[in-house]
Amino acid sequence: MTRVAHTRAEREANLRSAADQREHERQAVAAHYEHSPEIFSLVLDSRLAYATGVYEHAGEDLETAQARKYARIAAKLDIRPGQRVLDVGCGWGSNLLYLAQHTEGVFQGITLSAQQREEALRRARAWGVADRVQIDVCHVEDLNLRPESFDAVLFSGSIVHMHNRPAVHQMVGEVLKPGGRVLISDCYFPVQPRGDRDSAATEYIFVEALGYCRLIGLAEELQLMERAGLDILHVEDLTRHYAQTLAHWIDNVRKHRRTIDAMAPGFAAVLQQYMTVARMSFARRTALEYMILATKGAPTVDPGAWPIAQKGGRS
């Protein structure tokens, strides 16, 4: 596949050795997530999803939209008792702990942030699921997993931080059992460039605020997945939903500006600024949010049978 770098950050990453880039991500990406979970709990929903919610109505609140998103991911991954699930970039455990509470699966999460691991484990204990939850501070490329040892792999808002996508998908293709599912929910560039990808705003969000981000085209990601032996089952657009989620987060930053700044001076402005850039990008569709579901071998879920609401009531 031709490797066209979309941004300056990506061009710089291409000049580093793979090991140097991994080290760069370990430092630069972790920095954002190492801020106190107390700060994020003022901004995000109660389970601390740092990813888009799913809204059915314009007036819905963040908590409802995130709850719908957890349930949607649970339905898509369809985890049966005893099945093993890997959450790559598990954050403070939003999806992982929801799934642990609502299924009888066994969970392994990784994050680059020790603070996130600690908070996720604290919640796992408080919610009585710690015996089925393991969380490590580990870069995805440092995972050393047995082939065909997982039934599901989840990336929610995390793959965007990973430069070496072929290696990531290769790993997923190897560790999934036949019938295993992978779900990715993340941000993509439209293939025909809209907006300036080398703008100060892009650089600010991808580098200054979030350390390292690599947005690629949706088709590029899908092709890498297919090359890793996966079959694409379902893709849906959540761009509008992310714009709405960000509006809620931004309002929460405003509400708690003083408290946040008391804990981390200047961080409230960083949050509001990067979230505003992101919200404008999604509102203008210069960046797109997709949820992708793929399977290794014959699928155990059937998206063709999923309901789509009928327009006009009567059917």
Partner: peptide, 20 residues
Amino acid sequence: IDSLGLIKLMVRIEEAFDIT
């Protein structure tokens, strides 16, 4: 003032005057 500059300015104004 580019688009990022405008966003930063709006945030500074919100902070300074405690408004939205």
